[in-house]
Computed example of a mutant assay.
Amino acid sequence: MRGRVMLGLVLTLAAAPALAQAPAPLAFVQPLSPAATQAVQERLREAGVYMRAPDGVWGPESQAALDRFQQARGLAATGSLNLATAQALGIALPQVLSVPEQAAGPAAGLSPRAVRNVQQRLRALGFYQGGADGVWGAGTQAALERFQRGRGLEATGQINPMTAQALGLNPGNLDAPLR
Rank of each mutant, 00 (worst) to 15 (best):
M1I: 05
V5W: 13
M6N: 05
A15H: 09
A16H: 12
A16V: 02
P17H: 07
A20V: 07
A20C: 01
P23A: 11
A24F: 01
L26R: 15
S33C: 05
P34M: 14
P34C: 11
P34K: 14
A35G: 09
E42D: 08
A47K: 03
V49C: 11
R52Y: 07
V57M: 13
G59Q: 12
G59A: 12
E61T: 10
A64P: 01
A65Q: 10
R68T: 02
F69L: 06
F69Y: 14
Q71L: 00
A76V: 08
A77G: 00
T78V: 01
N82R: 08
L83S: 15
A84Q: 15
T85Y: 09
G90T: 12
V96S: 03
S98L: 11
V99A: 09
Q102H: 12
A104K: 12
G109Q: 09
P112I: 03
R121S: 06
L122F: 02
L125Y: 05
G126H: 12
F127G: 01
Y128G: 06
Y128L: 09
Q129V: 09
G130H: 10
G131Q: 15
D133L: 00
V135H: 06
A143K: 03
L144D: 01
Q148T: 05
T156K: 14
P161H: 07
M162P: 05
Q165G: 03
L169N: 11
P171R: 04
G172R: 11
L174Q: 06
D175G: 03
A176W: 01
R179N: 11
